[in-house]
Amino acid sequence: MRTDDLITLLSQTPPRRPPLRLSLAVVVAIAVTMVVNTLVLGLRPDIAMPPLSMAYKSVVLLTLAVIAGGILARVARPVATAGQGVIAAVLFALLVAGSLGWEWSHAAPTAILHSFVLPNFPFCLGAVTIYGAAAAGALTGLMRFYAPADERRAAAAIGFAAAAAGAVGYSIHCPIDSPSFVVVAYGLPIAWVTLASRMLLVRLIRW
């Protein structure tokens, strides 16, 4: 094909409609996960009168999902744009560290560790992993319409955002709000979905 032919061809082709924004896709993933979670697992028993600790858990997980969505949107372009990611990450780490410090200074270690021997712990690990994997599949399909500068980083960002969205969706079922529990039971699946995505999704988002 001659280059001039290609130019003619492309100039006669209407420009593509932009795909769904990735940050918006994370919001959709949260909403879908919440609906599926409500239908399949149900809501936590005290959802009608939620304790203050649930607000803490929701804020932490939603903040994480917002940060993840922002990262995902930024890494999806050939030229990475500047963002407030580092500041947000530092503030988030301070929030989590502060809540962990508060819990360990106010509660007995046995009470904190007790939640890890409940059946909720492996269930949380599994549920967040499954929701995260499903959302990662959807976000991968969407990422194919984008052009990430660094495909490994973009693949990891897909897993991170998907698992964070899954964690938010699942959190309305899980009645345990202990900061230590949230960090471990939600943090571990987010970490391994991120790692697995980084290893497995790179080939699927090449452009």
Binding site: T3, L6, L10, P15, R16, P78, V79, T81, A147
Partner: peptide
């Protein structure tokens, strides 16, 4: 390569952020 890049420019033009210089985006692609 020129042809492949032009096709990519056509397909991925929506990833261009108009707050950034266009040539920086083009050369990144």
């Amino acid at each position: 390569m020129v042809q492949e890049i032009m096709l990519t420019v056509h397909l991925k033009l929506h990833t261009y952020d108009d707050a950034m210089p266009f040539l920086a985006w083009l050369y990144a692609v």
